[in-house]
Design a protein around this nucleic acid. Structure first.
Length: 110
DNA sequence: AGCGTGACGTGTA
DNA sequence: GTACACGCCACGC
């Protein structure tokens, strides 16, 4: 949004930044919202680049199982603590009641 | 233009 | 329930 890079990163960043606190979304949901049916990998790849932008709550993005796949990129349990700080409950690296906290842009933003 | 890679997703065994 | 393979799109070399 802020730029005309035409790169998928910007699109992913924009969506991730819209994720409300205490909510989470999945790579597939974002990919679907962007129009990529199975572009979940692209989202994950974009998130990898999100490290350059600390304003991106990448910790709110998990895989379709609600597992903190990218926690290793945050360093230890930082990702889990961030989510717990937002009222979420993490158990065994996965979000409890994941579907309950799931935030789908294509539905919430509709 | 082709190959390899990736914080994924889904299906099948 | 776990393990493996395929598919999918975009970027870097």
């Amino acid at each position: 949004m802020a730029t005309d890079k035409s790169s998928i990163f910007e699109d992913v960043y924009a969506v991730v930044r819209l994720i409300p606190q205490g909510r989470v979304t999945s790579y597939g949901a974002i990919a679907q919202f962007l129009g990529k049916k199975s572009g979940a990998r692209l989202v994950g790849w974009a998130m990898n680049a999100s490290h350059a932008d600390p304003s991106i709550p990448a910790h709110r993005v998990v895989n379709s199982s609600g597992i903190l796949t990218g926690k290793g990129f945050f360093g230890g349990n930082l990702m889990q603590e961030l989510l717990e700080a937002e009222g979420l409950v993490i158990k065994n690296d996965k979000i409890v009641d994941f579907k309950k906290h799931l935030w789908i842009p294509s539905e919430e933003l509709l």
